[in-house]
Amino acid sequence: MTSASTPQGLARFNVLEEHAALAALHEVCASTAWARRLLAGRPYTTAGDLYAAADAATSVLTAADLDEAMAGHPPIGGPRPGDPASAREQSGMASASDRLKAEMLELNLAYQEKFGHVFLVCATGRTGEQMRDAARERIGNTPERERETVRTELGRINRIRLARLVEADRRPRPL
């Protein structure tokens, strides 16, 4: 049940038709299992309730669910055309030198060869150098440790994207 204190964007999300809510959640995270868990928890009274549900859903994703979620993310330094969320999140690579971009491409390829999936990092607020350093460090992880690191990074990305979803209606609407 929503209340007068429920943020407007969250209240709007709570009453979306199921297919529209599912589509909005898929823009946050490509895992169908994750989206369905959040959908089943509606209505949310506070953004904190939604974030807690998102964290809980992320914590129980299977290996296949994580693979599905990661498949929705482009490599660092290569946001998909028409994907403003990834472009915004990876903006730290936009001003990177050609040398740094080439190094990140090599690291992405080496990482994908070792782990079998895209290098996933919460890139929001990170510089190109910080993303490169994270890739360098994590490429030494065991597959098991990296899987848990990916789960943590996915949770961070999901929270940032959910915040945008919840706060989307705080802007004044044109008349």
Rank of each mutant, 00 (worst) to 15 (best):
G48N: 13
T58H: 10
A40T: 02
G48K: 10
A69G: 05
D49F: 01
A69V: 03
T45P: 04
L39Q: 14
A56G: 12
S59Q: 15
P75G: 01
D65E: 11
A24G: 02
T46E: 10
L61Y: 02
D67S: 14
D49H: 11
A21S: 07
A69Q: 04
D49Q: 10
A23S: 14
M70G: 12
R42K: 10
T58Y: 08
D49A: 12
W34I: 02
L39R: 06
A52R: 15
E27R: 14
L61E: 12
D55Q: 13
A33L: 06
L25E: 03
D49Y: 02
A47F: 11
T62K: 04
A64P: 05
V60S: 15
R37N: 11
A71K: 14
H73L: 15
L22E: 13
L66H: 11
A40E: 12
A64N: 12
W34Y: 13
M70L: 15
L39Y: 01
L22W: 08
P75W: 03
L50K: 03
C29M: 03
A56H: 12
A35E: 03
W34E: 00
T62P: 03
P74A: 14
E68P: 07
R36I: 12
T62Q: 06
G72S: 04
E68N: 09
A21H: 00
S31A: 13
T58S: 13
L22A: 10
L22S: 10
